[in-house]
């Protein structure tokens, strides 16, 4: 599904990713851990196409396409979804309207019929129920005045509606209370399927108690320095990242 091959990338003027390689197959869940500033968000941003994040070397193949060659909206329509570490507030734009516009833009790109508002509403109501979300958030402007946890939940809800093929969750668990963590993990688990993959960036192994990863990687100084199974996350929790400098 996703093949990142020896990528070097800059964020602004600063070289952040330095020879990163990673392969994600359909249905797999990869967790990425690593110290602050290592380049984890930069990786997610690079995949989603954030401005000022640029690959200088290497390649990224997504379902047979050169991902880095696509516009952000094309990547989304191809099935890439990034749950932001810091979701943006957009005053004056209603959450529902935003989501329907997004969904229909993606459908149009894929040559599918647009969803009318009645269909959309029905679908969204079902998702709200499935994902145990509060529906009042949908009537409000996108992320405006949402608490930290509400913003993260809204990201997961958007993921549920857009049904991406590859979801990248950037610290979606940070700032969540225990119940919210459960809701968010349930949301992810419900979406897990043999043709959908996840990259989960997190600092805490507790999330991985809820979402069982196939692989755990350590990203440090712009590349993946260690890979393992869920056990690696437990070791990291005990040892921290001091060993990286030895």
């Amino acid at each position: 599904m996703l093949k990142i091959n020896d990528v070097y990338a800059k964020a602004g003027d600063k070289e952040i990713l330095k020879g990163l390689s990673l392969e994600v197959k359909p249905g797999e869940v990869h967790a990425i851990m690593g110290p602050n500033g290592a380049g984890k968000s930069t990786l997610g941003n690079l995949l989603a196409g954030m401005p000022h994040v640029e690959a200088t070397q290497g390649s990224v193949d997504f379902l047979g396409k050169d991902l880095l060659d696509l516009e952000p909206e094309e990547r989304a329509a191809e099935g890439v979804f990034l749950a932001f570490q810091y979701p943006v507030e957009i005053p004056g734009v209603n959450n529902m309207y935003f989501l329907r516009t997004a969904l229909n833009a993606q459908r149009k790109y894929r040559g599918e019929e647009p969803m009318d508002s009645a269909q959309f509403l029905r679908m969204v109501k079902q998702k709200i129920k499935d994902m145990n979300m509060r529906d009042d958030l949908l009537k409000r402007p996108v992320n405006v005045g949402f608490s930290g946890g509400e913003k993260k939940r809204n990201e997961v809800f958007q993921m549920g509606v857009l049904e991406p093929k590859l979801a990248i969750l950037d610290e979606t668990d940070s700032g969540l209370d225990i119940d919210a963590l459960k809701i968010v993990s349930d949301g992810v688990n419900q979406l897990r399927s043999s043709d959908r993959s996840f990259i989960i960036i997190t600092h805490y192994q507790r999330l991985l108690d809820h979402i069982e990863p196939d692989y755990v990687h350590v990203l440090a100084d712009g590349k993946i320095v260690k890979s393992g199974t869920k056990k690696l996350a437990l070791e990291l929790e005990e040892q921290g990242y001091g060993w990286l400098n030895q």
Partner: peptide, 18 residues
């Protein structure tokens, strides 16, 4: 904000309009 909208599939032109 524009990127946020784009990352959900909305074209840059429509994102600007929104």
């Amino acid at each position: 904000s524009l990127f946020y909208l784009q990352s959900r599939g909305i074209s840059i032109e429509q994102a600007r309009e929104i």
